[in-house]
Amino acid sequence: MNSVDSIPAKNSLLSSQAESERTLYPYVTGTSVIGIKYNDGILLVADMGGSYGSTLRYKSVERLKPVGKHSLIGGGGEISDFQEILRKLDELILYDNMWDDGNSLGPKEVHSYLSRVMYNRRNKFDPFWNSLVLGGMKKGQKYLGTVNMIGVHYEDNHVATGFGNHLAQPILRDEWHENLSFEDGVKLLEKCMRVLLYRDRSAINKLQIAKITEEGITISQPYALKTFWNFSAFQNPTLGAEGSW
């Protein structure tokens, strides 16, 4: 027997063991997250679905979480990776707090940290399979940014991940302005989420809105949007395309 054959490919990147320890594709995923700046802070919205492929596996996944005193994070993509990121952020905030020097990490710092973590994991070919939105408010400064699984990151007045980038961003570009009130901001986000609910099959009608202002962070109780399914195109989708099925 050839001696080379008897040596198991222990450290090969191609061995099944190494492959099973990397996220090569996601298992349970969350869909879009949307964030906007408004009058006196940031609003984030996400639904609570967790999809196992095309199966709606979980219906109460909290995808909006506070990070320290000044930041708010929203996560889409692999839920387990998102929860690991939350654990790392908890640790980051705890260790920062232990300095007890009266300083605390703001949203800019947290976003920078997340960008480096995401990029570092892509460099190891072991990505966190997520799109993250980070909102925050510190010393009167609003902050809204996003990072994805290969480390691409940027700031903007309104951001949306996944399907949101296709369906919600055009609405936001039309209707967003600097002086949105809280009520108008929520209305705008609900309009976006309704469009996503109609057109994104993995979106569900159970969502949370989170807000961060100078006063602090509030995350809403889960609630549903009013929907209207009686559009004629919904009731008889093939009417305009006779001859198809």
Partner: peptide, 15 residues
């Protein structure tokens, strides 16, 4: 579950 995504790439072109 079968794999649904194309193989993951560490690169993107952002133009």
């Amino acid at each position: 579950m079968t794999k649904q995504q194309a193989n993951w790439s560490p690169y993107d072109n952002n133009g």
